[in-house]
Design a protein around this nucleic acid. Structure first.
Length: 330
DNA sequence: ATGGTTTTTACTGCGTC
DNA sequence: GACGCGGTAAAAACCAT
C-alpha cells in the first residue's frame, strides 16, 4: 500500500534507472583500471599502482607503509625492528607516555631506601601533572572515561570504543567542543561509532546510560556527523536481530527467519524511512509465528522499546513482502 | 515555521484459555 | 475475566525544506 514511502533519508534508492539499459556500474572503486578495465597491480617498490593490462599509472608517490630496512631471517628481523607496543586511541595519550610504577622497587625488585622512595613519589606527582598538562588532554581523559563507561554498560566491543575515541579526538581537533558538553560529544561519538561498526544501539539504549538528555544527544550527534563528514548509513535492521532474539530467549531458527524476512523486505523496498528497530522487532515476531514459537507482541515491544502498534504494522508488511518476493520454500 | 511521514498513545471489539 | 491480538483516530515526534 504505502508504495509512496519516499522519505528522503539516505536509505536504499532503487530508483535512478534511466530508460536505456546501459552499464549498471559506472564507477567501480579501486580494483579496475579506468582506461581499459584491466586489473590493477600495486608496486610498493616504486610506490605506484599500475594497470596490469595497459600499464596506466593510476597512483604514484604512495607512501610505502613497510619498514625501510630488510631482514633475511627472523632473528635479524627482531634485531632491526624498532616498533613497540601498538598505540591505542583509547588512552588520552595513545598509550605512549611513561608511567612510573607504584611499587617502590628498583629494576631488580629490591625495595628502595626511604630517600629514594620520596624522590619517586615526587617524580610520580610531576609526571602525572605533565601527562595531563593542558585542558585538551584533561578533556580527552574525561571523555574517554565516559565512552568507556557507557560502552561497557551497553556491552559494546573494543573496536567500537576505539572508533568512538577516534571520532571524539577528531571533534576535539576540529574545535567542535566549545559550547557543547563533553558528555554530549562523547555520547554522540559512541552512538556514531556503534552504528558505523554495524553494532548499533538505539537512541533509547544510549540515552539510558548517558548523562545527557535525548534532545542534547540528537542535536550533538547531528552536529558532529555534519561537521566531521562522518558517513553513517541508516542502521541495518538485521544487526539488531541477534541481540533481541537472545534477550527473548528464542532459538537460532527464529533469528535466521527474521533475517530472511528483512532481506526480502529490503528487496521489495518497503524498508526505507521506517525505524530499523521496529523492523527488527516485527521481523522477530513474524519469524516466531512462522516457527511456531510463542512470543507475544508485548514481550518484543519490551525488549526492543517499540510500541506494539508499530510491530503489528511492520510485521504485516514483512509477511506481504515475503509472499511477493516468494521463492522461499517452507 | 511548515508540511509530510512515522511512531506512540489510548481505546475498542473479538476470540480463547 | 484476563489475555493476546487487530484495528482506528488523534497526538507527538521526526526530518527536510
Amino acid at each position: 500500500m504505502s508504495e509512496t514511502s519516499t522519505r528522503s533519508r539516505p536509505t536504499e534508492r532503487t530508483s535512478e534507472r534511466k530508460t536505456d539499459e546501459k552499464v549498471e556500474h559506472e564507477e567501480t572503486k579501486t580494483d579496475v583500471c579506468p582506461e581499459c578495465g584491466g586489473g590493477l597491480v600495486t608496486d610498493s617498490e616504486r610506490g605506484e599502482t599500475v594497470c596490469g593490462e595497459c600499464g596506466l599509472v593510476v597512483e604514484e608517490d604512495e607512501i610505502d607503509p613497510g619498514p625501510e630496512w630488510r631482514a633475511f631471517d627472523a632473528a635479524e628481523k627482531d634485531q632491526k625492528s624498532r616498533v613497540g607496543a601498538p598505540t591505542t586511541n583509547m588512552m588520552h595519550d595513545k598509550g605512549l607516555s611513561t608511567n612510573i610504577g607504584w611499587q617502590d622497587k628498583d629494576a631488580y625488585g629490591n625495595s628502595l631506601s626511604s630517600r629514594q622512595r620520596e624522590k619517586m613519589q615526587r617524580l610520580r606527582t610531576w609526571n602525572e601533572r605533565f601527562r595531563t598538562r593542558d585542558s585538551k588532554e584533561r578533556n580527552l581523559k574525561q571523555a574517554l572515561g565516559e565512552i568507556d563507561r557507557m560502552a561497557s554498560a551497553l556491552g559494546l566491543p573494543e573496536n567500537v570504543r576505539e572508533t568512538a575515541s577516534v571520532i571524539y579526538r577528531r571533534a576535539l581537533d576540529e574545535n567542535l567542543l566549545p559550547g557543547r558538553s563533553i558528555e554530549g560529544v562523547a555520547t554522540a561519538s559512541l552512538y556514531a561509532a556503534a552504528r558505523q561498526a554495524g553494532n548499533p544501539r538505539s537512541l533509547d539504549e544510549i540515552e539510558r546510560v548517558s548523562r545527557i538528555g535525548r534532545m542534547e544527544l540528537t542535536r550533538t550527534y547531528r552536529y558532529v556527523v555534519r561537521e566531521l563528514n562522518l558517513e553513517v548509513q541508516p542502521a541495518d535492521p538485521e544487526s539488531y536481530v541477534p541481540r533481541f532474539v537472545s534477550d527473548l530467549e528464542l532459538n537460532e531458527e527464529v533469528s535466521r527467519r527474521a533475517r530472511e524476512l528483512v532481506d526480502s523486505a529490503r528487496k521489495e523496498g518497503v524498508l526505507s524511512g521506517k525505524s530499523p528497530v521496529g523492523i527488527a522487532a516485527a521481523a522477530i515476531y513474524a519469524a516466531a509465528l512462522l516457527s511456531n514459537e510463542r512470543v507475544t507482541q508485548g514481550e518484543i515491544s519490551e525488549v526492543a522499546d517499540i510500541s506494539e502498534v508499530t510491530i503489528r504494522n511492520r510485521y504485516k508488511e514483512l509477511l506481504e513482502a515475503k509472499s511477493v518476493d516468494g521463492t522461499r520454500v517452507q
